[in-house]
Amino acid sequence: MGLLNNTLPDNKLVGAVDTAVGWGRKSSVWPMTFGIACCAIEMMAVFAATFDLDRFGAGIPRATPRQSDLIIVPGTVNAKMAVRVRRLYDQMAEPRYVIAMGACVCGGGPYVKWGYNTVKGVHKIIPVDIFVPGCPPRPEALMDGILKLREKIGREAVFARRNEANTQMNAKYDAVS
């Protein structure tokens, strides 16, 4: 893709493809069925009838990381779980997005001081696109985060950022693990 990016001129055609693909991506952000703690219940409430995430094309929680575009990390990630979260993220196909839901995942939350076992924010493990603080955030707050993510995806150039960034990031992670 980097090759395409270098050779294709920045013209209207490429821009139109960008817009079209971006629209397609943001309209079907399929999250992964992944619950850790308290926030997972509010995440389930978002999928239920009252809030109905399907209105944004994101209402089909996929049971496997291979089929999902979005991983919502809902709940405290501790040392034992962090390895699994990292592996789940690695198993997802590009383009992939991460929403950190709840104070624990955004930066430690209530367990920041005495939590000998908890990771102080999942952005220490995997790159995060949107942070949704709150303990737990209201379902509306999570939907606000998903709307922000949709905006972000829509703005993205299709052939550029994520591939580059992730290849570099993966290389670095492979080096440390």
Binding site: A82, V83, Y116, V119, K120, I126, P127, V176
Partner: peptide, 17 residues
């Protein structure tokens, strides 16, 4: 192990090998 537990730790993917 490799999992940072401190608040101001450098994220795994930003570390310089």
């Amino acid at each position: 192990g490799e999992i940072p537990l401190e608040l101001d730790a450098i994220p795994l993917y930003e570390r310089d090998e």
